[in-house]
């Protein structure tokens, strides 16, 4: 556990979205410096959880606390240290990759020098250098997601929240995206939701949600031992 990175603690968090109880009594610990997988089928409450962590929703009950180096950080200050990529397409189809990076660097108030260095590094890291001038609307599904990730990574966040980044992406691009996530995981805490159960194996810690409740929260190997199963998805068959 890297104490300089952000850890998050949820205590008995409940959230109702209109008539649906999206989360009930959710208590979880997201230790710093790990890749956390929030796994569950559609409607399990993954997106609500990620949005709560991003500060875009407020819990109806319970509390969410953020810690850095053992000290609690006020929720008002945490937003600037979090990077969040929503599940839905959220980039501008008519802007190029470079224009996106430029836009987000300005939102993050980065200097031009910093922007040049970081954007070059990030584009190279995800293999988009040669597509820098291509419009987001003309990118493939995998490239589009990669662009989204590097846009939010520009700010060098302490906590990266990814809501189903691999959904609708071909297997090769999925592998690339996970390589990217593994590549940056020593620099930040990563919380990634997914409905692909096989992706649980790629996470340092897995938090399984179903119908707004926590089914399990542990290392993938421990969960398999605990439920005496060979694959994580078998949790839902028990």
């Amino acid at each position: 556990m890297n104490k300089n990175l952000i850890s998050v603690s949820l205590t008995k968090v409940g959230k109702k979205m209109l008539e649906t109880q999206a989360l009930s009594d959710v208590s979880l610990n997201f230790e710093s410096g790990k890749i956390h997988g929030v796994i569950g089928p559609d409607g399990a409450g993954k997106t609500t959880l990620i949005r709560l962590l991003a500060g875009l929703l407020k819990p109806d009950s319970g509390k969410i606390e953020y810690f850095k180096s053992g000290n609690q950080i006020p929720n008002t200050l945490i937003r600037k240290r979090i990077a969040y990529l929503p599940q839905e397409q959220s980039l501008y189809a008519d802007l190029s990759c470079m224009e996106h990076l430029e836009f987000f660097s300005n939102i993050y108030n980065m200097s031009k020098k910093d922007f040049k260095q970081k954007s070059k590094k990030l584009l190279e890291m995800v293999g988009l250098s040669q597509f820098a001038d291509r419009k987001a609307g003309n990118l493939s599904g995998g490239m589009y997601k990669k662009l989204g990730v590097i846009c939010v990574l520009l700010n060098s966040p302490d906590l990266l929240l990814l809501d189903e980044p691999t959904i609708g992406v071909d297997p090769l691009s999925r592998r690339d995206l996970w390589n990217l996530i593994h590549g940056i995981s020593n620099e930040m805490t990563v919380i990634c939701s997914t409905s692909y159960m096989d992706e649980a194996e790629k996470c340092g810690k897995v938090h399984i949600l179903n119908e707004g409740k926590v089914l399990a929260s542990d290392l993938p190997g421990n969960i398999k031992k605990q439920f005496k199963i060979k694959k994580i998805e078998e949790v839902f068959l028990l």
Partner: peptide, 13 residues
């Protein structure tokens, strides 16, 4: 409508 507001809001702007 195009979903970019969610990303924009998460930046704390």
């Amino acid at each position: 409508e195009r979903g970019s507001m969610e990303l924009l809001l998460s930046t704390g702007i």
